[in-house]
Each structure stands twice: as C-alpha cells, then as structure tokens.
Design a protein around this nucleic acid. Structure first.
Lengths: 250, 250
DNA sequence: CGCACAGCTTCTGGATCCAAAAGCCCGGAC
DNA sequence: GTCCGGGCTTTTGGATCCAGAAGCTGTGCG
C-alpha cells in the first residue's frame, strides 16, 4: 500500500502536499471554460485520490497558491464540494475534508442498493445487444485502469452506461452523489486487496444479458455488499472513533 | 389562486419582482453568521414561493441591489442553489431558475417513494409514544400554516421528525433534496386545490401508531401518489413542452 | 427591402484590497 | 506553579475594480 493510504485522523495542521497538488493542477490546466470548475475538478481529484486526506484542513490561500489562481475560484470550488458532501465548513475556521463514519458508509451502501437495484430493473427492460457490447468494452477499460482518479472515473462510466438505458437522469444523479461519497475509500480498497473485482463486471454483464432481473439484482446486491464490507474494514481499521466531525483543536 | 401562480415559460427578460424580493430580504435580515447563507435562504424562499418563477433569469447585479449586498455573496448563493438543483448556469449567460419537467417530477416521486417507505419502515421500529405526540403537534402546525415558505418548512419539519427515529442522516438528506426539487409545485397544488391534505397527516400518524408497517407504507405511498398526480396536473397545464432548459433567446 | 458585419453595451468571472472575528501566545497575578 | 486576561496574528468573508466575451443594434451593401 503506497502513501495513498490516508493518514486520516491526524493531518489537521498545515501539512498540505503542495507538490502533489501542483501535479494534479497540471493535469487539469487544459481548456476549461472557467477557472472555478477547474479548481473544483482538481480538488475533487485530490480528495478522491487521497492527496487531500479526510480531516485535512483546507486553507484558501494555500490552495490558491498551489494551483496558481486567486482565492476566489477556490472559494467557489469549496462551496460546490461542500454541496457534494466532500468538504465541510467550520464556522469561521475554514473548510476541512470530510471523513465518513462507518455508520454513514453503511447507510450509503444501503441506499445505493435500493436505488441501483431499481435502476438496474428499469434498465434491463430497455437493454439492447449494442449496450451489452459497450458495457463489455467499458468493463475492460475499467479493469485496465490502475491509478487513482481514472479508476473511479472508469467505473463511473461503466455504471452510467449500465443505468443509462433506464432513462432516469434524476435517479442517476442520486446514485452518482452516493458513489462520490464513498469513492475515496473504494480506491483504498482497490489498493489494499481488490483482486477479484474484475469478475464482478463480467458476472454482472452476463446476468444482465441473461435477462433474469432477479438474478441480476442479486449479483448487484452481493457486489455492493462485498465492496461495502471492504470499505467498512478499511474504515474501522483507519479511524476507530472518527465521525464526520474533524478533530480540530479548540 | 393569487399571483403566486407562476407565469413560467416566459419571464426571461428583466421582469424581476424587486419589491417582493426586498420584502423577503427583510424577513431574513436577522442575525446570520454570514451574508452568503442569508442570500441563499432568501433566494431559496423566493424560488419556493414563486417570487422567482421557473425560467426567471437571475442577474447578479439586480439580485445584489434588491437584497442590498454585493454581488459576491450572491454568487456564493447561486452556486449553492445550483448544487441543490434549483438554478442552472448557462455558459456565459448567468443563472436561470430551473424548471421541472413532468418526467423529472415523476422520477422524483418514484425515488421518494422508494426512500421514504424505507425510512418509514426503519423509523417505525424505533417509534415511541413521545414521538407520536410530537408528530401530532407538528402535523397541526403544518396544517395551520398557510403562506408560502412556512408551509413548506412546516411540512419538512413534520417529515424530519417522522424519519428522525430511523437515525439515518444520509437517507434524510437525500429525501430532503428530493422534496426541495418539487417544493415549489407542491405549494402551487396547495394554493390550487389542496383541501383534503389535512387528513393525510392524521391518517399517516394513526397508521404509524398502529404499528402495521405494511399498512403505514401503503398510506405513505398513496399520499405521495396523490401529491404527485396533483403536481403533474399543475405541470402539464402550466407548461406543456417545457423541459429543464429555459427558453432563452439565441 | 433584407441580410450581414461591425461597433457598442452589458453582463459574468477573476484579481486585488480591506475589515472583522476567532485562535494563540505571552505576561501577570494569585 | 497554574490560571486567567489581553493583545497579536492569522484567516475567512465582503466590497470594489477590471478584463473578456456574448448579445444587441444600427448601418451599409446587395
């Protein structure tokens, strides 16, 4: 496990990896319509990859300097990230990367099961061979991805295609929100011991292709349960008593 | 039906009810920790009550002057509202109050049914007589409210108390998001012909008190279906072909 | 008479500057 | 030696200012 494994609980001070942030900034500096959304993407990537670990305090000045912009677009990005549930504003003390408690993770996976089973059911009614083929392609791409943000993105694309047949944009938006909340920890799981995950994609595709809704739902359920348990293991190991509140000094 | 009924489709120009906005601003000027969240609350109220109808273009300068602040906190508020799905940014043309298509409304109520039935199930396992009593109180308060924003707020409080027993903050957050999306139109329904709605609260409370999960779920389902149908009627009547995209000129 | 191009206006988005509040540290007193 | 209070510093949040881009309008040409 590389240094991507989050130090979590600690890291409240100024311990901000400016170099890694600059590197991420470089990857995103190409053609954005506004600086604000660029910063948003950079910070989202940074949080998802663990460059900005949970509990990390985010000082606007520092972030702005690292990325090379003013503080204003940083503020915009932080507000958006707050809405996404990735950061948290502390009164007059600035933003902090949110942690996820074990309870919250359990909840997220419970809701995801509800919503994704529904999305799967709706999608399977509209499934076509072309979509199956595209799913296989995206599944392969997802399995090929190794590094941080791309790994999460590839998986997101796979599920976007899977559920797109349902034509339920609001439902997908909800699912995406929930996936975002646990994205960081899934990444950790991947790095720790996600070896057999490749099977999940193919197993799910086969079930969808078969057309048996109940069977496919079962496959999806068990897949989500497996990921949930792995995430929980990682969570309770990393931070025993940490909840959403960051351990700031008083 | 007062002038709160939205003119909808039109109203792309500068037709902004500055006076009504100032009045709303007055109601909120008391003790906020930051101006940004105050503006956010003001604009949210304005959208929920129909003061800012769907399709209304939101010019930062105008809003700032009406409320009496700078453009900067207005921008912050607009970003938050975008995350809530209440407004939409159009490239270089600013923010517009989002419309809700009939399809989107159907989706919202479908997802709400899924989530709220689950929340109800979980809550009923933890229900106590004290909670029942508080629900009755909140139900009465909600029924007593007549005007715009307070009506929505009172109903939100009722459901917050109902689902609070489940101790599922993430689930509640999701439900709240969805309720926010349709809040405006429910308000319209109330104004148009929501006469028998008072029964819903008591009927639901009685079912919860009874302890029969299946029965209570049924009551909740049919309540949501009734509101959905009323909202849909209002939607298809108001704007036949309007989708999320606002009819801006090109 | 209609269409197209150019200039003007207007609005958003970004940067720099300023004020206020909260935390931190040091000194003094008990 | 410890605890409380006051001043200092740091950092957020707000206001004003500036630049760039998109739309609108007026005029000229076909």
């Amino acid at each position: 496990m590389s240094e991507l494994t989050v130090p979590a609980g600690r890291a409240s001070g100024a311990g901000l990896d400016a170099a890694a942030l600059q590197q991420l900034a470089g990857k995103h500096q190409t053609g954005y319509r506004s600086v604000g959304v660029m910063v948003y993407d950079i910070l989202k990537d940074a949080i998802l990859t663990g460059t900005l670990p949970p509990g990390q305090r985010l000082r606007q000045e520092t972030l702005a300097e690292s990325i090379g912009v003013s503080r204003l677009p940083v503020r915009s990005a932080l507000i958006q990230l707050e809405a996404d549930g990735l950061v948290e504003f502390h009164e007059r003390r600035g933003a902090v990367v949110k942690s996820l408690s074990a309870d919250q993770a359990r909840e997220v996976y419970g809701i995801r099961t509800l919503l994704e089973v529904e999305a799967l059911r709706l999608s399977m009614a509209e499934m076509t061979p072309e979509r199956i083929a595209r799913l296989r392609e995206l599944g392969r791409t997802a399995d090929a991805e190794e590094e941080g943000a791309d790994f999460v993105d590839a998986r997101t694309e796979f599920y976007a295609e899977l559920y797109d047949a349902a034509h339920r944009p609001v439902l997908w938006e909800m699912i995406e929100q929930l996936r975002l909340k646990v994205g960081r920890y899934v990444l950790g799981w991947r790095l720790v011991g996600g070896a057999e995950h490749g099977h999940s994609h193919e197993e799910l595709i086969a079930a969808v292709e078969g057309g048996d809704v109940e069977h496919a739902s079962g496959v999806l359920r068990s897949h989500l349960e497996r990921v949930r348990d792995a995430v929980l293991e990682l969570l309770v190991a990393g931070e025993p008593g940490a909840t959403a509140g960051a351990p700031l000094r008083h």
